[in-house]
Amino acid sequence: MSEATMEISLSVNGEQVARTVPVRQHLVDFLRTEMGLTGSHLGCEHGVCGACSVRVDGAVVRGCLMLAVQADGAEVVTVEGLTQTGEVADLQENFVNRNAMQCGYCTPGMLITASELLRDPKPVTRAEIRDHLSGNFCRCTGYHAIVDAVEMTLNKRLEEG
């Protein structure tokens, strides 16, 4: 079988791009190899670890469980885009100050996943934060510091309305 390809055009971090891609390529391989956006990581490529989490049309998804061709016409946001817009600057600052990462490999996925909890902030318990992050694997921190950082950010946002 020869390599089937398809033209796609999509918005990546606010920039409109068009590419011809192999139809079998998953979204994160596309972002990493075609777009040079290496912030999204591959940890398992079977949808368990969450390191590849990206935002597609406003919702966080596993980037390895979506084909690049399926993002045709979509708006994709990676951690680089999230950083650029400053949407989670407070969360990022708290991650740094609380040392909510060690090796940093899970961090982009954690931030993107947590951003969904922060977008429309509601009071939540630590257990609910843990539940929300339960699909993102971190081997380094033991999660405590990550929960702290998300909780601090959420409380601050709630306080500030």
């Binding site: 949808g47 969450g50 998804v61 596993r62 469980l65 979506m66 699909g135």
Partner: peptide
Amino acid sequence: MPHVAHHAVRNR
């Protein structure tokens, strides 16, 4: 529904 996988998986 909360038992179905995780947020990112439920989104898709």
